[in-house]
Structures are given as C-alpha cells and as structure tokens.
Design a protein around this nucleic acid. Structure first.
Length: 204
DNA sequence: GCTACGGTACCCTTACATCA
DNA sequence: TTGATGTAAGGGTACCGTAG
C-alpha cells in the first residue's frame, strides 16, 4: 500500500503539531519526538488538527500485521509507517496500545472462564451439602427405626440377644464426619436403602 | 569489565473524540 | 449537556545491545 491509498484529508500528527516536536539527532539521522499540546479544549486547534483517528484503511493494515506478529521490529515498523504514511512513532504507539487491548481482552476472557468455573463449583457444593443433609436425615430415621425394633423386641429374649450380640461384635460405625453411630448400617431395613447413585437423581 | 546511551516493551495516565 | 467508552499519545521504568 502506498500514500495514494491514504485519505486525501488525512493529516499527520507531525503536521498537526509542528511546533510541539522537538528534534533529536541520533547517529547522523534526525528523529522527531512528539510533545502533545496539553491545552484543554480544542478552541486553539483547527478542524483538521482535531482529526486524530487513523483511517479505516490504516487500521485494517495495522490489524493485519498485528495478527501475524504482536511484536514490531524496527525494520517492519519503518516499512509499515511508510506504507501507511504515518510517523514510525505512531506505528509503534499503535502496536503498544493494541498489545494492551489484546492483553485486557485476554484477561477478561480468563476472568469470565474462572467466574464460570467458580459458579459451577458453588452449585456443586450446594448439591453436596443437600446430599449430606438428606443422608443425615435418613440416618436419623434409621436410628429411630432401630431403636423402635429394639424396644418392641425387648419382650423376646432371643431377638434382643441377637441385636445386642451384633452390636458387641461389630465396631461402632464411624461416619464421614467423625460421628460414632451405634447401629449396624448393614442391618438397615431394605426399605431404607437407596440403591446406588439414586440420590443423584434427586438433584439433577 | 564498566559506563553511557539509544531503542523498545510494558505500564499507567492523560487528552480528546464519539456516542447514547 | 453529560457521563461512559474507546483510542492516540505522554511519560516513567526496566532491560538489552552496543560503542567507547
């Protein structure tokens, strides 16, 4: 791309602020360093001077180059600048800002992804808490049932003996949360038994 | 090896344009 | 008119390569 592709009304920053450039001499060649006018408001600037945005064509080419490589070597910068009719400094600045935008976008994406993961974890945690509550409830019911069976069978010496002997042989059940349950879960009535992962269906 | 210097990346900030 | 947002650019700092 050459200069004739640039909009006719394109105005270079160096033209806009002729007095605000300080000349620097480096190894025989002159390089300009821009110093922006810090006057507030635009009353002292012409309409052309206010036009600061790069043209769509310029941005398109810059984006194209940025897509290929985020870093900008000196040679590439100068070539791009001459293709676009821009100051090399402008090209460098554009790449700096573009890298910053790219980084921010990446951070936003990462944040969204972590947020989603966090929300999923919270929901999962909630389900697990519910599961614990339901299991505790069932345990309590089983204990009551066991107690009822013991009391109703206390008149029969054989049945009472059976329950007590099982309790004597088997160690007390140590629950998930370190609680000691004094009943044999394996003797739980079949009606109280939830088969396999059936509980999952309660929440899914 | 040391020092000065230029170039550049990166970061934060500022100034300005645009739009709802 | 005004506040929010996007963007070009200023300025500081750190690092690296190079010349003297």
């Amino acid at each position: 791309m050459s200069h004739h592709h640039i909009d006719d009304d394109m105005v270079f920053i160096s033209q806009l602020y002729p007095g605000s450039y300080t000349e620097m001499t480096t190894q025989g060649e002159t390089k300009s360093r821009r110093r922006r006018n810090k006057k507030k408001g635009a009353q002292n600037e012409s309409a052309a001077a206010r036009k600061r945005k790069l043209s769509a064509e310029q941005v398109k080419l810059l984006e194209l180059h940025f897509g290929n490589e985020h870093k900008l070597e000196s040679e590439r910068k100068d070539r791009l600048a001459s293709e676009l009719g821009l100051d090399p400094r402008q090209v460098a600045v554009w790449f700096q800002n573009r890298r910053a935008r790219w980084k921010n976008k990446k951070l936003d994406e990462e944040y969204s992804s972590l947020k989603k993961l966090h929300e999923t974890t919270i929901v999962e945690n909630c389900h697990l808490q519910n599961e614990v509550l339901k299991l505790k409830e069932k345990l309590s019911e089983a204990e009551k049932e066991n107690q009822r069976l013991r009391e109703s069978g206390s008149n029969s010496p054989t049945s009472s003996q059976t329950v007590q002997s099982v309790g004597a042989v088997e160690p007390p059940f140590l629950g998930e949360f370190g609680e000691v349950y004094d009943y044999d879960m394996f003797s739980m009535p079949e009606t109280h038994y939830i088969n396999g992962m059936e509980w999952v269906n309660l929440y899914m």
